[in-house]
Structure formats: structure tokens, C-alpha cells
């Protein structure tokens, strides 16, 4: 039996790699197509779609699409806006949602079970159903800034950030993770006289790297891909994010090469963010799998 297993090992390994390669190919080829196409004239790009040339750096390659994309739209501004809004929202969300989850899991207070149920129930409400009521609310909210008191949050960064800081999914992720941390740690810290704030900062958060990475990546993707909300609350180009900016390239006759160049440019921050956090993200997924 052992001999059979040993004989099969190379075959099984090859099969496993073949499957992994196939899956990787399926995921990588669209990105490869996007990047390669961004260097080709539109006519050549369209002609290449009929063959494997679409995925290869062949033909008349240039940076013209990138130059034209920058001429057509303020690409750098859109990327800056999205990165700023996304980055601040992710940071604030991690802080607020982890605090909420900490309270739900470790602190005893009346009604926490009911409130947690209500928070989780928000997961089933599509954003589209609350978009208009939320628009009406933010359009009348006061704000005190450098210019004094203003009424209405439209056309600002805050209107793209604040409504998205707290959400049921992120709180749920933290709650599940905190529940699986050893309770003895918290009890020991309490016995030593640590305050809740100290336990949160010095015990729980240092152990929460994987869930922080997971929540950050999920939140990053949600925020970076925002379309409907900024579309209805931002009417000034200076606050417009990348996804709304994509519309600049869809005139009746679409310049597909420029579209690919723009998509390549706006994908860079997403890839960079994922690469930075991928080790913790994979650790989080792996630990979830072990528990499951």
C-alpha cells in the first residue's frame, strides 16, 4: 500500500500543479489581456482578440494609449481621490468595527445580543434600497469646517467616507475572530487589573493581524469599486473617484486602447494593496479553513 502511494505521488503532484496552473491561467489571462492591450492601437487590439496574440506583447507597441488617457481625463486626480477615500475609510473602519466587535464579544451590557442581531441583519439590505434616503440625509447634514458652518455634505470627501465606516460585514468578521481567541487571555488581563482599553490595545489587537488584513482587503475592494454612491453625491470632478471616471472613456465610439490603459493604471493600487497584505490574508483564510 505504501509502495503504491509512493509511486502515485509524482503523478498526483503533477495533477495538482496542472489544476493550479489552469486556475491561475483563468485568473491571470484577463489581466494579461488588459495590460497587453493597453500598449496596442485599438485596431490592432481588436484584431488580436481572435488569437493568442491578444495576450502577447507583439505588434505595434507604444505608450500612446496612456498619453491619450491622461489627455482625456484627470486620471491622477481620480486615482488620488479613490486612494484617499479608500485608505481613510479602511483605517477608520478597522478601528470602529473592531471596537464594536470587542464590545459585543467581551463586555457585558444589556441588549448586546439584540443589537448584534440588528447589525448582522443589515447584511441582507441591498445598498440600492437605502441610497436615496441616505442621499437625502447627507444633503442636509451640517458640517463645521475651515469655512465655518455648512449645510450639506455633497461634493466632499467626507460624504464618500463617513457613511461607509461602520458596516455589518466588518463587525461580523471581527466578532467571529474575537470569539475564537482564547478567553483565558482576557480573563488573565482582567485579573491583572487591565482596563478594557488596555486589553483591546495590548492583548486583542496584537493577536488580530489576520482578521485585520482580511477586513482591510474586503473593505478596500468595496470602497475602491464604489460607483453608485459617488455618482449621486459627487457632482464636482475634483472629488470624483476612479470608477465614475471610467465613464469618460465610453463615448459612442469607444477608444478601447485608452480604456485598457486606464484600467491598467487604476488596477495598480489594488494589486499593491493586496501584495502588501497577502501573507496575513492567506493566513486568515487558512486559519478559517482549519477551524471550519
Amino acid at each position: 500500500m505504501a509502495m503504491v502511494s509512493a509511486d502515485n505521488r509524482p503523478l498526483r503532484l503533477a495533477a495538482r500543479y496542472a489544476v493550479l496552473l489552469l486556475v491561475a491561467t483563468i485568473f491571470v489571462f484577463p489581466l494579461l489581456f488588459m495590460v497587453m492591450s493597453s500598449f496596442k492601437p485599438t485596431q490592432q487590439m481588436l484584431a488580436d482578440t481572435a488569437s493568442l496574440r491578444a495576450f502577447l506583447p507583439v505588434g505595434d507597441l507604444s505608450l500612446d494609449n496612456y498619453r491619450d488617457a491622461f489627455a482625456r481625463a484627470p486620471v491622477a486626480l481620480f486615482v488620488f481621490n479613490s486612494v484617499l477615500v479608500t485608505g481613510l475609510t479602511v483605517l477608520l473602519s478597522l478601528a470602529i468595527c473592531s471596537l464594536a466587535a470587542f464590545s459585543f464579544v467581551y463586555m457585558n451590557w444589556r441588549g448586546r445580543g439584540l443589537l448584534l442581531s440588528i447589525v448582522l441583519a443589515t447584511l441582507i439590505i441591498p445598498f440600492e434600497t437605502i441610497a436615496i434616503p441616505l442621499l437625502l440625509i447627507v444633503s442636509k447634514l451640517p458640517w463645521v469646517g475651515l469655512d465655518g458652518l455648512q449645510i450639506g455634505w455633497l461634493n466632499s470627501y467626507r460624504v464618500q467616507i463617513i457613511p461607509w465606516i461602520a458596516d455589518g460585514l466588518t463587525i461580523f468578521l471581527f466578532v467571529q475572530y474575537f470569539k475564537d481567541l482564547p478567553g483565558e487571555l482576557i480573563e488573565a488581563a482582567r485579573a491583572e487589573g487591565a482596563t478594557w482599553g488596555q486589553i483591546y490595545r495590548r492583548v486583542v489587537m496584537p493577536l488580530s493581524g489576520p482578521v485585520l488584513a482580511t477586513a482591510a482587503i474586503l473593505k478596500f475592494l468595496i470602497m475602491y469599486n464604489q460607483y453608485l454612491w459617488p455618482l449621486i453625491v459627487v457632482q464636482q470632478e475634483s472629488y470624483r473617484p476612479v470608477m465614475v471616471g471610467l465613464g469618460y472613456f465610453f463615448q459612442l465610439n469607444v477608444a478601447w486602447g485608452e480604456v485598457m490603459a486606464y484600467l491598467t493604471l487604476i488596477t495598480v493600487p489594488v494589486l499593491a494593496f493586496y501584495l502588501v497584505l497577502q501573507r496575513a490574508f492567506i493566513a486568515s483564510i487558512a486559519s478559517t479553513g482549519v477551524k471550519g
Partner: peptide
């Protein structure tokens, strides 16, 4: 002038009308 992408222009105007903007 404030310019909008054509494919989302009508939605932007309707939203702005709702918000009184």
C-alpha cells in the same frame, strides 16, 4: 462648467434634483 460622463449623467441630475442641488 461641470462636465459629467454621458453614461451616468441623467442619474447624476436626478440625484441632484432630489437633493436640491
Amino acid at each position: 462648467i461641470e462636465s459629467f460622463p454621458q453614461n451616468s449623467y441623467n442619474d447624476s441630475v436626478v440625484a441632484a434634483a432630489l437633493a436640491g442641488n
